[in-house]
């Protein structure tokens, strides 16, 4: 049975006095796959350890289905965790590793054996039951670690960058496997990652943590198209920013008056648009620009445009061939322009 996880105003300070997490409030619905995204050292792992019960937060509460879990020891939380390293027990065989959690809960040998076999099949490691962890590759070890966590039938699965130590192909394979296991299983998943691509491709919702503070908690699509502030936008690769004053659904900017589709309160704001949304054509919201440089990226060409004092990036399909120094018309479609005030 999957759980509804609620973090209520969690703060944590290390014993050195350094703040790891500040006032984190977050809810993950039952069966949801949520990514906790942020650069390394932003307090993500601390949050996972607090949820798992390995760390007690300095302040705040962890709730599962409305029950306060803050003081409950990890072994009674029905929360399984897969760490960055596989952390298989080196003195036990693969089968004994996977069966560890069941044995600790007092399950009999035969039933344990049956479930271990099933769990190993789920991660396609059925032929390795009698091997020692040191005989397996990194990817295989991490798959066994996944089986070891899932066999305990957790209500909540915590993944702490479990793919970051693997090479690119394997990482892709593990993501697919995780997605599949989450879809077929009955548990809520919280994935910690520093890789926004991973968060976007796996998660239903992303919580972006910068300097221990939650910046934004929304769908992947919202992070690209409706970032709440400049840091969030920059974390997701946005490079085009324009200062402006909003009035009557349009913004007064150095590029002239630009129409906005999204309702934005009047006042000063920062406008942003993704490079791939910039059009090189005339029309509404267009202005003359000069091509400053071009970078060929295979599936698209990234142009740097100059219009007065403003520089913008535009990513266009590679069949559009334009030379450096050429004058063009650039257009920022109203529906792709997003504004936030800070």
């Amino acid at each position: 049975m999957s759980t509804r996880l609620e973090l209520r105003d969690i703060s944590h300070r290390y014993r050195t006095g350094e703040r790891a997490v500040s006032h984190l409030t977050l809810t993950a619905g039952p069966g949801e796959l949520v990514a906790l995204l942020g650069p390394s050292g932003c307090g993500k792992t601390t949050v996972l350890k607090i949820i798992a019960g390995l760390l007690r937060p300095t302040a705040g509460a962890v709730l599962a289905d409305g029950n306060d879990m803050t003081g409950v020891p990890p072994e009674r939380r029905r929360v399984a965790m897969v760490f960055q390293k596989p952390l298989l027990f080196p003195h036990l065989s693969v089968a004994a590793n996977v069966g560890f959690g069941l044995r600790m809960r007092g399950m009999g040998r035969r039933e344990t054996g049956r479930r271990v076999e099933q769990a190993l099949r789920q991660v396609r490691m059925e032929g390795f039951a009698d091997r020692r962890p040191e005989e397996l590759s990194g990817g295989q070890q991490q798959r066994v670690a996944l089986a070891r966590a899932l066999v305990t039938e957790p209500r909540l699965l915590l993944l702490d960058e479990p793919f970051s130590a693997l090479d690119a192909n394997l990482r892709e394979e593990m993501r697919e496997l995780t997605k599949h296991l989450h879809a077929t299983g009955d548990f809520t998943t919280l994935l910690v990652t520093h890789d926004q691509g991973e968060a976007v491709s796996l998660a239903e919702r992303i919580a972006l943590l910068l300097d221990g503070r939650l910046q934004m908690y929304d769908t992947p699509e919202a992070f690209y198209n409706r970032p709440v502030n400049r840091r969030v936008a920059e974390f997701f690769g946005a490079t085009n920013f324009l200062e402006g004053r909003i009035s009557d659904g349009a913004a007064e900017t150095p590029l002239g008056r630009l129409k906005l589709a999204a309702p934005v309160p009047p006042g000063s704001a920062t406008l942003t648009i993704r490079p791939e949304a910039v059009r090189l054509e005339a029309g509404e919201n267009s202005f003359p620009a000069r091509i400053l440089s071009a970078a060929y990226l295979g599936t698209q060409v990234l142009y740097t445009l100059e219009a007065g004092s403003v520089r913008l990036r535009a990513a266009v399909p590679p069949h559009v061939k334009l030379g450096v120094g050429q004058r063009v018309s650039a257009r920022l479609p109203a529906e792709s322009l997003w504004a936030f005030s800070e």
Binding site: K49, A52, L54, P73, P74, E75, F89, H91, F100, M104
Partner: peptide
Amino acid sequence: GELEEAARTLGAGPWQAFWHVTLPQ
């Protein structure tokens, strides 16, 4: 202490973690 943390999240109490993970190690 990472192996012990892994053991705890798998359902081992502090004594079980000591007996089944720490001691063999």
